[in-house]
Design a protein around this nucleic acid. Structure first.
Lengths: 143, 143
DNA sequence: CAAATATAGTTAGTATAACAACTATTTCCT
DNA sequence: AGGAAATAGTTGTTATACTAACTATATTTG
């Protein structure tokens, strides 16, 4: 790997990640989804996992505590998520989707698949496996 | 590609891009570089290209105007970049590195290569080419 | 058991990203 | 030439990311 490539991979990675998020965010907004891309990730994970603490959820979505606190605050204000006191630990909450939250997840799920598909034109399953392997290797190298 | 994969690629991309930036930012901070990762990208491009307008620079680094304005503000305050009135266009500035800026680029360049190398352990040139091809394809699919 | 240590979540500060809107200036069109 | 449209850069707003520090609580240690 040349010097230039050692600059380039991070630049391309950042550029593409931002573009993917920006594209999705625009589609979310145009579709009046009422959640951002990151808020969607949170409610989707709550939908798939039921009741979670903030720490459990933070680990699932790879977000730090302060960021997750703020995302949950917004989702609670929007009425999609509820914080309940944890029965066994006064430091902790149990997070769960409200009925509106569950409805939102059901409505949005199919639409989001088609949004995500566009990025993958001209790429195939093998590309996905390669991409995943490389991304995971990079991630693990920097832990 | 399954539904899950259509969620997963964006998640993995976001997760890894953040981690790469975070890792680099930590190293920058520990090394007392006095610039963030994004500020480095800007001064590096000025170093490679000489005098640029903000619009030219924004196109090179794929950042929007407001973000770039703010980054340039910080770099001017730090004394690494200078805004000069454009001789032929009263709407525009010419941006250039100060002597301190040039020195900073020279000092940091070699250190940054070694920071970037770590992510690439267990990956090779072929992986880089694959990675680049996939990232560019995704980017172009979403333009 | 009491103190030390760790943990859950929050607040504050700085930085960046994206969108919207704006002003001053330039370019284009009739 | 004059007006319309486009452009360069800025300001404001909302959201997210990361670090640092904090309080309340739980767990561990001696």
């Amino acid at each position: 790997m040349t010097y230039e490539q050692f600059s380039k991979y991070s630049f391309l990675l950042d550029r593409t990640a931002r573009r993917v998020k920006q594209y999705a965010q625009q589609k979310f907004k145009n579709g009046n989804f009422d959640v951002t891309v990151d808020q969607w990730l949170v409610i989707k994970n709550l939908s798939e996992n039921g009741v979670l603490s903030q720490t459990e959820l933070a680990q699932l979505v790879f977000k730090d505590h302060p960021t997750l606190t703020r995302i949950i605050d917004i989702l609670c204000k929007k009425g999609y998520v509820e914080r309940l006191p944890h029965p066994n630990d006064r430091r902790s909450f149990q997070l769960l989707l409200t009925e509106d939250g569950k409805t939102k997840v059901s409505e949005l799920r199919p639409q989001i698949v088609s949004i995500r598909e566009k990025a993958w034109e001209n790429l195939d399953e093998k590309d996905f496996q390669e991409f995943k392997r490389i991304l995971n290797t990079i991630y693990e190298n920097l832990e």
